[in-house]
Amino acid sequence: MGFHETRFPASLSFGSVGGPERRTDVVTLANGFEERNTPWAHSRRRYDAGVSMRSLDDIETLISFFEARNGQLNGFRWKDWADYKSCLASRDIAYDDQVIAIGDEIEASFQLTKTYRSGDESYTRPITKPVAGTVRVGVAGDELQEGIHYSVDTATGIVTFVHPPNEGFEITAGFEFDVPVRFDTDRIQTSVSSFRAGNVPSVPVVEVRI
């Protein structure tokens, strides 16, 4: 599968519906109790951009983007307006938003991650598509400078330090990020309701593993 480092127009993804999904196998035992298991370590996100189409110009932009991706063939970036920062949406990104690793004086490359917490439980999500120019990184409470102390691969979300961080030092990061997705259909059906407005019933998009 190919992947294009191109973002779906953010003005068209705004207003879309969607979010994370999990796969859980539930077996009800004879005594009424349940056994629940999941084959997925990570959630997968789905969206529908159709509800955000507002004009014929939007539809033309959508069709151009769809054709350039060859339908489902090539993946692309998607801005999830409900979850696109390492911090709360109302806050500004800071270099200490997320703890992504602990230094060991050996490893120099680390995956960006975002941790979701509720009560005593948490889930750590790999971030593979950070937005260029938004990544801030710190070590042991001090912010470092990109291009001097570290580099960021925006196609993988890997942060590589010039020198491996010292053992026990906390490595933190803040960033904006996109979701790697593809169209979940090979067909776009439009219905023109007037000479100035159009309607796209469904434009399903699904997250892909990178």
Rank of each mutant, 00 (worst) to 15 (best):
R91V: 08
I100G: 00
I106E: 09
D58V: 00
V192G: 07
S16V: 05
S43G: 04
E5V: 02
G50S: 08
H42A: 10
V135F: 03
L29T: 07
T6C: 06
I102H: 12
F169K: 06
T190P: 04
V99Y: 01
E176T: 08
A49T: 05
D184K: 11
A101C: 15
D178H: 15
G157S: 04
L29S: 09
E67N: 11
W81P: 03
D184G: 15
K85M: 11
Q111Y: 12
S109W: 12
S16L: 05
A94G: 06
T154N: 15
N166D: 11
S191M: 10
T113Y: 10
A140Q: 14
R77Y: 13
V192F: 14
K114A: 08
D80L: 02
V17T: 14
A30I: 14
Q72S: 14
S86H: 00
V203K: 03
I102G: 06
G147P: 06
F8M: 02
Y123W: 11
S52D: 07
A132H: 11
E21I: 07
T61M: 07
R187K: 09
T28Y: 04
H149R: 07
C87P: 09
G141H: 09
T38P: 04
Q72N: 11
F33D: 12
Q98H: 10
R22E: 12
E143Y: 06
A108N: 12
T61L: 06
Y47C: 02
